[in-house]
Amino acid sequence: MNGSSTIVKVVSLAIILPALTFGLYIIAHGHLTPGGGFQGGAIIASAFALFLVAFDKQASKTLRKNLLSALECLALLGFIGLSFFGLGKSFFFNFLANSGLIFGQAVPFGPNPGFINTAGVIPLMNFLVGLEVSCALTIIVLTMLKAGGDKK
């Protein structure tokens, strides 16, 4: 394997950064527009898969399996721990909504322009689930890319 050609590298660089930005937008606006943690995480993981296929040597130094697996476990534990915080009323209770703290603004009924500072724990859970899904799908592609040797 001599690595990819120049055309593949340039076109991949032109696609990877807009795809990452689009995935982060989908995660951050998960409580206002269609999409959420799983969808944004899948888009970010597909951008990382393109990075792994096009830049084989450099990508193996940047995306290491130990770092990705640690991030995935931390995100999953944070998601479960955040759901335990609402245990005063019930499991998965939205304790930050309409409370005036971070993400605690109330929403008027009916169509409105959409305020980013609303929805309680839903943006935090979106961020944690997006981190978990992107790390998990990247680990799958990375493990299958490293396994075995090429066909002679």
Partner: peptide, 28 residues
């Protein structure tokens, strides 16, 4: 109740949160 414009997100993460927890566990 959940102060979110996106009703699908409020169902997935608030009303039916255990489903999302199971989905994340399946992926893990």
């Amino acid at each position: 109740e959940s102060a979110s414009n996106n009703v699908v997100a409020s169902i997935v993460f608030d009303y039916r949160g255990l489903d999302t927890l199971g989905e994340a566990t399946v992926l893990f």
